[in-house]
Design a binder for these strands. Structure first.
Lengths: 215, 215
DNA sequence: CTGGCCTTTGACCATACGGTCAGGAAACGA
DNA sequence: TCGTTTCCTGACCGTATGGTCAAAGGCCAG
């Protein structure tokens, strides 16, 4: 019979510094490798090398490759959902949707690997995050559809099907991350400059806002 | 020294019926498996099972997994480029771009697996078709940009950056294939009906054509 | 200093994968 | 029918991968 260890255990985790640091290291490496090789093509050895840790150490922090992958996808999903704040509380579609486009374009720029992992996961039928699609994403989507419908009913924008508008917003903004390599190739092999990113945002906003009659 | 066999060899391939049929079988299976598992996650065994052939038979027609994959990607690229015909010879943007949207949406519907394979390939840095991006795709893109610019100069549409317009067209239309699973999940788990596909096409065309001032 | 926990890691294992090959079966022209 | 080419396939092989483990190393409270 062990002594009453609960008292000690109940305390906040004692020394999470090393753990936090190493998990961050591993997750960063994993995000990149999963994005560049897909789940099936990624190897724990590759992730370990990129993180600068021995492979066995990865399994100390994440029991399986699947667990690590799941965590990467979840992290991205969080970031992605947070962009919704731009949407909420906006009086008119130009502000709400324009802000959403800006936010999602910024995510595509800052987290291109994450976006790719997400895209791969969904393309393959969402084997690990199907439940998220059915619950969180569905609720989120329903909410925004209602918001858009309110704008339409108030005559603030044209009567567009809100669902297809959302798909267009997702597709267009994420394209700059997921197909960044193609865009870079068509840009003389160079990444977009600050100015080019501004142009991209402006072009997207211009077309869509005018397209929904909210310009 | 062998007898002069060249005379026989020079003839058109004698019996291609079986070969053609089996290659088609294999390519169809491969397209699906590569789409659903990615290159790294796909196995020759899986493709063989889906094609209804023993694994060794695949290697008779396609020497390596890479060769098979390359062929799948090339086939998709062909189909994808052919949609350009809608673009060409159109007098005004509504016809040209509208037709292009219709054509690409139809491809997303008919070849969702191919679109996914293409997307994965590009997302992973186009390791096998980088040369296509730099040559064929670049030329194709430059040509369409000129066509769009002509429309702009003729006052037939608003002065949008043609490049970003193209990206939006690609992103939006391919989204219905690449993220088809997500769309299906948000559609009560059911694939889009004929009517819903018509609505999707109409919505996309409506927003974009109005967005570029060509409605 | 010391005891206990967290962390690290090289060595190891079972499995699954891409690919090979030899020998046989069809298919076809003559 | 015969000879030649194409096609088929079970058995096999080397390798790489995800994961395990036990022993060592480090860190901190008491």
């Amino acid at each position: 019979m062990p002594p009453p260890a609960q008292i000690t255990r109940i305390k906040a985790p004692r020394r999470t510094e090393i753990r936090r640091e190493n998990e961050r290291l591993i997750l960063n490496a994993a995000e990149r490798v999963f994005a560049e090789a897909g789940f099936g093509g990624a190897t724990m050895q590759l992730i370990a090398d990129l993180a600068g840790l021995p492979k066995a150490n990865l399994h100390y922090y994440f029991p399986t490759k699947e667990a690590l992958y799941r965590r990467v996808v979840q992290d991205i999903f969080e970031i992605w959902l947070d962009a919704a704040s731009s949407f909420d509380g906006a009086e008119d579609p130009a502000t709400g949707i324009g802000g959403y486009i800006d936010a999602k374009m910024e995510i595509s720029r800052r987290h291109p690997h994450g976006s790719k992992v997400w895209a791969s996961e969904v393309m393959q039928g969402a084997p690990v995050i199907q439940d998220y699609l059915e619950t969180t994403l569905k609720d989120w989507t329903d909410g925004r559809i209602r918001a858009i419908q309110t704008w339409i009913d108030a005559g603030k924008m044209a009567p567009i099907d809100p669902r297809h508008l959302l798909y267009m917003l997702w597709a267009t903004t994420q394209h700059y991350a997921d197909f960044g390599h193609q865009i870079e190739t068509l840009n003389h092999g160079k990444p977009l400059t600050d100015q080019q990113w501004r142009d991209a945002k402006a072009s997207v906003k211009s077309i869509i806002l005018r397209g929904i009659g909210a310009a």
